[in-house]
Design a protein around this nucleic acid. Structure first.
Lengths: 338, 338
DNA sequence: TTTATTTACGTAAACGTTTGCAGCAAATCG
DNA sequence: CGATTTGCTGCAAACGTTTACGTAAATAAA
């Protein structure tokens, strides 16, 4: 089968390539009659414009990149869902890259993206990332970036986040109201801003009740889940007075469930648990887990919209376009008053 | 900042564009000395080759497409994970498209992919798809395709699936051994081959025990979850003798949990439940759900590897390269002998 | 020495599209 | 009627890369 491109169409129609191109782009400087003829043949031949030729010429790829730590996590899966929706509506394609929270991999990915493959980037930084030179170099290459959830404070661009401080405060307050006196806070030990905000909310909620913060109750988790289980087990054994756990990330809440099962601590009678989570099955857990749930789909869609607006208008993304969405606290049995 | 491309590098080095290009591609017809000089400058200027120019010229995009129904589903999320890994290792990029199980959207997406944007396609077809003309037209455009999980039997290419028949048989046998006499089978009403295989396994397992199949016990679910809950409720009320449920897809197992909660049927005492599922938290449900779990990550990685091998060798993908992976049955409390 | 062969590089033509410019009718205006 | 505008179309040059081909010098073979 001979290739079907502008040239072949033009030959068959006895007109120039330029006219065919313009007709298909609905240019005002080509007659209706010609447009109709061109469109008819293009449809008949199932013509699809070559994306690369077009991108090369126009210096526009109609593609955005998404760099995230992982996809097998309901939060990021939902975010991608929102991103894909916004992209599709705007006629954009979505390239996906996973860092697995590995700094080196993030650098390598970002470096490759400078080849003009994408018009803009959505990013949730790896938890290990401390140096942001690779990201800044992208900005110098004039590539618009929008961060979501795990943002990079050092880069002046739009960020889409949730009200993490308020949520941390609210979750802690919720445990206090449920009668907890000694509340542990589990977070992932890294430099992510979201963890810091949630922690501050926790601390302030305690302070508002006149409770002095106890550093011994703040557990810094690690990447490895097995190790987290050990850490939590040690914590609960060392401090039998703990009657509430606020997990900053889903995994730590799940690990807490495992440890409580193992140690025979009953939830919520002995210990109440609440955690950030987008787990669909939270309501079906044993017991149903109270969660602070981020609007993941909306985060993704909103971030994509901000990025695409900037891309289309060829304007830089401004920090002032940042958006803060609200998480929701779902009260379930794991924090019920026993 | 002036653009850094082959031309600018060549000018600065006082040599031709061709030599620079060849040096960077490590051609044997350029001296080691020149290569060193070129590579040094390229690194210093942070040169990244323009992906589109290269793709246009070589008619190779180093990109594969992934078309799936949804991403907010642990199975597909894990599959993407595997795909991304295989792609990254081979130096390929991954474009993602979601059909939301919508036929029209699938057609539109596939149509767009003919623009040369991708070198190969991985696909799990939408459950509503009955006509495969759009997919066949891709094959005519010489684009290699590998199906995974939800395959299209009509297209002669490689498919990566799981042993669905055996798993259906095994799940049913498991319920029978747990003492169930009246086992319902819940599946999504569509033409997907996987559903048919699982159903056949169910029927054969019953037959092997001398049980006549009862069509009234086979429930065809729909896309809408609310409606499924109603259907399951009606079924359980109409047939109080049902003491076992085998759900062909995760959602239907979860809906069964909801209905049992609502009707006060105890799992596993009154009804035992098993379902296909990749839910991470299955072991934490109330009660822990017995599952047949597909090796989703491996499916994705294997499918991508088969595709990439074909792409690299510019050979068509043959049906004989198909792979069947094995699912695992995880026995948990939802099917325990009460 | 002459004639092949090899090595290292340059020239220029692609790949398919978009777009500034020019041309050339027909229509409009002075 | 000549001059100008308007509407439509074609020519040709880009975009940045790759690569077939040519060529000059250096080396090897005769």
């Amino acid at each position: 089968m001979p290739p079907v491109n502008l040239k072949s169409l033009a030959e068959e129609l006895n007109m120039s390539i330029a006219t065919v191109s313009r007709a298909l782009r609905d240019s005002h400087e080509v007659s209706e009659a010609t447009k109709t003829r061109v469109r008819a043949l293009a449809a008949a031949r199932h013509y699809e414009p070559n994306a690369y030729a077009s991108s090369l010429r126009r210096n526009i790829s109609k593609t955005i990149g998404v760099v995230i730590p992982k996809v097998a996590n309901h939060f990021f899966a939902l975010a991608i869902n929102g991103i894909e929706e916004a992209a599709r509506q705007a006629g954009y394609h979505v390239l996906i890259y996973l860092t697995h929270d590995d700094y080196a991999r993030e650098v390598s990915i970002v470096q490759h993206l400078k080849g003009g493959r994408i018009d803009g980037l959505l990013m949730s930084v790896a938890s290990g990332t401390e140096d942001f030179a690779h990201i800044k170099s992208l900005r110098e290459a004039n590539l618009p970036i929008v961060f979501f959830d795990r943002v990079c404070a050092e880069v002046a661009t739009a960020k889409v986040t949730t009200n993490d401080y308020e949520s941390g405060y609210q979750a802690t307050e919720h445990l206090l109201q449920a009668g907890c006196r000694h509340i542990a806070h589990l977070l992932i030990s890294n430099n992510l801003s979201i963890g810091q905000f949630r922690l501050q909310g926790y601390l302030d909620a305690l302070a508002a009740r006149g409770c002095a913060p106890d550093p011994d109750l703040i557990l810094h988790g690690v990447m490895d889940n097995e190790q987290n289980v050990s850490l939590i087990r040690e914590l609960l054994l060392r401090r039998p007075d703990i009657d509430g756990v606020f997990a900053s990330v889903e995994r730590l809440a799940i690990s807490t469930y495992h440890v409580c099962n193992e140690l025979g601590r009953r939830i919520p009678q002995d210990i109440k648990v609440i955690g950030f989570s987008n787990l669909e099955a939270a309501a079906l857990l044993d017991p149903p887990l109270s969660t602070i749930t981020q609007p993941a789909y909306d985060i993704g869609r909103e971030a994509a919209r901000i990025l695409l607006r900037a891309v289309e208008k060829k304007k830089p993304v401004l920090p002032s376009q940042s958006v803060v969405l609200e998480s929701t606290l779902f009260e379930r049995r794991s924090t019920a008053n026993s």
